[in-house]
């Protein structure tokens, strides 16, 4: 059987590309939203609760980046 050569802009490709675009958008929106919340004084626990993930997960993912941003982070367990 000859392997099919799908078009890059066909309906299946559109759905798969939508997944890529949504992931990218979700990642960027998360970075921006977490940073904004922390700048206005939210704690890691509050951000984690709002995102529905553990405090450890959100800390691990964003803490270095927010340190680079120079955001004064509220103390542990706050």
């Amino acid at each position: 059987m000859t392997p099919m050569a799908p078009e890059p802009t066909g309906p299946e490709a559109d759905d798969l590309a939508a997944v890529v675009a949504l992931r990218e958008l979700a990642d960027r929106l998360e970075d921006a939203a977490v940073e904004r919340a922390m700048r206005t004084g939210w704690s890691w626990s509050q951000v984690a609760e709002a995102l529905g993930v553990t405090r450890q997960a959100v800390h691990k993912k964003h803490h270095r980046r927010l340190e680079i941003a120079g955001i004064e982070l509220r103390r542990r367990n706050a």
Binding site: D14, D15, A17, A18, V19, V20, A21, L22, L25, R28, L29, D31, A32, V34, E35, R64, R65, L66, I68, A69
Partner: peptide, 20 residues
């Protein structure tokens, strides 16, 4: 691609963040 999923583009200023 976003429109294929029914999503309108989000304004760039809402996506501003410090990057790794």
């Amino acid at each position: 691609s976003l429109r294929a999923a029914g999503i309108e583009p989000v304004a760039e200023e809402r996506l501003l963040a410090t990057r790794q």
